[in-house]
Design a protein around this nucleic acid. Structure first.
Length: 198
DNA sequence: TCGAATATATAAC
DNA sequence: GTTATATATTCGA
């Protein structure tokens, strides 16, 4: 295998589960870590999206880890508290995307941050943060739905790998279930995350 | 509203 | 390798 020192022969597990009309899916690799998550109205799109992120052909089955991850994902979707047991697989993620994801994980539940705020924090630019956020491999586990335009409108969100109006509704619902107050299409400014300390 | 500026990723050359 | 094009944005006029 040419230049493939990083590529292990890994067994990939893909599991999906339906909850309240939405399909949730996880892709699990070596060391039982989460390579990617996704959700969609259609199981077919969900599987296609997850397979696109898979370095090799995954096997569709359930394991302890995939069940734990799926249940936690549904809890996150419903805005419930979780035990946070799922370990993420960072090894295929670029340095810049790692930085963006780490910063998103700092945004507390019930708060939002703008692309520009995050950009300042990591010494980058808002467009670049936008692409980083869009490429988040772990929606829900890494709360990219808490990143919004500086105008405090809802902004964009993709579900199952595609931007859509439905995605925007989902983003809005997720935020509301986390306790963010939204009037019309404007997020209350009190929901803005004010980072404490460094 | 509209256009430029901005940092990154990707595809084309 | 280098250049062109596209972004889940932002800011100023």
């Amino acid at each position: 295998m040419k230049g493939g020192a990083k590529q292990h022969m890994e067994k990939l597990t893909l599991s999906t589960k339906e909850h309240d009309g939405t399909w949730f899916g996880v892709l699990i690799g070596n060391r039982d870590k989460l390579l990617a998550s996704s959700f969609s109205k259609s199981q077919k799109n969900l599987v296609r999206h997850l397979r696109a992120d898979a370095p090799r052909k995954p096997i569709e089955k359930f394991t302890n880890e995939s069940n734990v991850a799926l249940n936690e994902m549904i809890d996150l979707y419903e805005g419930r508290r979780t035990t946070n047991q799922v370990r993420l697989e960072w090894q295929n993620v670029s340095e810049f995307e790692k930085t963006v994801c780490r910063t998103m994980k700092e945004i507390p539940k019930g708060k939002v941050a703008s692309y520009g705020m995050l950009a300042k924090r990591i010494h980058s630019g808002p467009r670049a943060v936008g692409t980083g956020v869009a490429r988040n491999p772990w929606p829900l586990f890494v709360p990219c739905h808490r990143v919004v335009p500086a105008s405090l409108e809802i902004g964009n969100y993709s579900v199952g790998g595609a931007l859509s109006d439905y995605g925007c509704e989902v983003k809005r619902d997720l935020l509301e279930r986390e306790g963010v107050s939204i009037e019309g299409d404007k997020i209350a400014s009190k929901a803005l995350w004010v980072p404490t300390g460094a």
